[in-house]
Amino acid sequence: MLGKLDQTQMETLLQQQVTGHIGCHADGVTYIVPVNYVYSAPYVYCHSAKGKKIEMMRRNPNVCFQVDEIRSIFNWQSVVAWGIFEEVTDVEESERLMQGLIHRIMPLANDPGDHPSHGITENDYDIGNGVDLIIYKIHLEKMTGRFEHH
């Protein structure tokens, strides 16, 4: 059976998952990339090093965010949302969001050791491993959800 997810089901899926995909578009190029995230309505919170995704979202902050749970080819659910990229520049907000990301991601890591490129390390001075981490949020303005169950 194919169907549409209601608002509560979409919110639940967004809260349960930790990896989604961001689609961005700038200068005639579309780019889709997986990201780790934390969801707290109406925002998706993420972090990244500088690179193609950040450059493109700075040029065009209109993005698409997708998350799914696939149990089998005929048993899945998916949410596609559209929103606005916003870089977090406030130090206190950035630190709070980074801690939230760490607490959400670390329990799912196979190796709980240091991951400085994700801001996860025993030594604060190792964070980023020479990489400036950028904390950003996507304000979700519209979303749709679908499912298939047999």
Rank of each mutant, 00 (worst) to 15 (best):
M1A: 09
K4I: 14
Q9D: 08
E11H: 11
T12A: 15
L13S: 00
L14G: 00
Q15W: 00
V18D: 06
T19D: 00
T19H: 00
G20C: 02
G20F: 00
G20M: 05
I22D: 05
C24D: 03
T30M: 15
T30G: 14
I32G: 03
V33G: 00
P34Y: 02
P34N: 04
V35K: 06
Y39F: 15
S40F: 05
A41D: 13
H47V: 03
H47R: 12
M56K: 04
M57T: 14
M57S: 10
R59A: 15
P61R: 07
P61A: 10
P61Q: 09
N62I: 08
V63E: 09
Q66G: 08
V67Y: 05
D68L: 03
E69P: 02
I70F: 01
R71A: 08
S72H: 02
W76Q: 02
W76N: 01
Q77S: 12
Q77M: 13
S78A: 13
V80F: 01
A81I: 08
A81T: 11
G83Y: 02
E86W: 02
E87C: 12
T89E: 15
T89L: 15
V91Y: 10
E95C: 02
E95M: 09
R96N: 11
L97I: 15
M98L: 13
M98Y: 00
L101H: 02
L101I: 10
I102D: 09
H103V: 10
I105T: 11
L108Q: 06
L108E: 03
P116V: 06
P116Y: 01
S117L: 11
G119P: 05
I120N: 09
N129P: 06
N129T: 08
N129H: 13
D132L: 11
Y136F: 15
I138K: 04
E141I: 12
G145L: 06
G145N: 06
G145I: 12
E148Y: 13
E148L: 12
E148A: 11
H149Q: 14
H150G: 10
H150E: 12
